[in-house]
Nucleic acid binder design. Sequence first.
DNA 1: AAACCCTGTTCGTCAAATTCGAACGGGGAG
DNA 2: CTCCCCGTTCGAATTTGACGAACAGGGTTT
Lengths: 255, 255
Amino acid sequence: MGREPNESRGIKSDGTLFDIIEILRTLDGAGVTELADRLDIAKSTVHGHLTTLLGRGFVVKRGQEYHLGLRFFEYGQYVRGQLDIFQSGLAAVDRLERETGEMSWLITHQNGKAIYVYGRGGKNDINVNTILGTRVHMHYNSGGKAILAHLPDDEVDRIVDRHGLPARTKNTITDRQQLTEELEAIREQGYALNLSEDLEGIQAIGVPLTVDGEVQGALSVAGPAHRMSKARCEGEILEHLRAATDEIDLTIAYR
Amino acid sequence: MGREPNESRGIKSDGTLFDIIEILRTLDGAGVTELADRLDIAKSTVHGHLTTLLGRGFVVKRGQEYHLGLRFFEYGQYVRGQLDIFQSGLAAVDRLERETGEMSWLITHQNGKAIYVYGRGGKNDINVNTILGTRVHMHYNSGGKAILAHLPDDEVDRIVDRHGLPARTKNTITDRQQLTEELEAIREQGYALNLSEDLEGIQAIGVPLTVDGEVQGALSVAGPAHRMSKARCEGEILEHLRAATDEIDLTIAYR
DNA sequence: AAACCCTGTTCGTCAAATTCGAACGGGGAG
DNA sequence: CTCCCCGTTCGAATTTGACGAACAGGGTTT
């Protein structure tokens, strides 16, 4: 059969399966006809995939609409729990929030993006749950920059090629050369700052978490600029972060 | 092509895709050969599915092993957030834990089983995260029983037929007739107790959460029997639970 | 150092199964 | 009552997923 030269040999029907899942997410549920129209395939095809998804619990049917099912949540919790840094990172975030009163985060990376794995709202009690699980670019996130700084150069190249360096504020690093210099500085300092590079008025500091010499993630503390001054970040907060990473290193070494 | 008479018309290749995912979970990651052996299919077939999964971020490769990826976490968080009762239930659980000092849970149901959606550890600070997302039978869970009691009779029948009434302790309800009577009592009382029916020495009380006349989930408070006496459950704790459901009803009515 | 065995990966072939489109049935709106 | 649009079912056709052999790359054993 016709297979294009450089087309990696995935399975097409799996592709449409995931297309369906993706649409169900962006639309917060949909019917057979709508899915078929959007994907430009037959209704019966969509129906077939949905039947399998239904049987596996990855999709539920409410009336005539199909919605993503809680099996995703089940698997999601499992995957998070599998991360080497999760258990100890969780405890660290809890303590960081108590000690600093600011938003504290555990993030990791996968496929060139940072993912919020666990967090605490700080005294402002930001709704953490809407942020958990979301993926963001690494170059405008303190934890993300800390991770990037400890990744091999060629991997950083591939990530930038793939995802670019889009601007979020006027402070976002959008230049390849500037990023390289920043990462160099981060490596020397051992921490990364985010001075309104993602959201205007939000500043943060992040440190990398390495396991067996590989960056697995980062811890970060974030808050409004008036409280999270550069001085406080590099002083008190960094102190707490160092203590946290030390304990994590210890916990993981004796896992 | 040969299609068995009563075989629902799902898509077979999607089935093996989910088989692969399931094995990757139970084994905490696996290689191509191992997957192919377990499923008794060709290595190249497995490889094809894995390639698609990899491309979509649902699987990651560490060395020669494939593991489930954080895309599951991403989707899982989304699905949880979509639940009508999540936002208000979260706040309720937080408050219940503060007020009672005991483990507090928000659960929902899907496919005939109860699923832990959100929880707090109480003063004993149980590790909630290993429990979140897990599915349990409804008949030995206080929240589960509260849900069952407010489901149509025929749906209860289907659930029992499908999942049975397995025993967890000597107190577990394992008899169909006895369950019917218990559910009747729960409907009248407006709450369900769990007196060591799941884990020996653990008692709990749960109340249903209904939205537009349909049970969407339940709130429950659980703890060691010596603290969670029947009297305390039906007194102080029930009081707090009622306050919580009232507020949730209000929040959802004005959503 | 060389032979071996394990892995994951690639590729061409073939039959199986996905996809299609048309037809069915049911519920709500006009 | 009629129409329309929904999800569902079904049979046919050809796309394409599954196979198995062959390749390549690390480790380990000989």
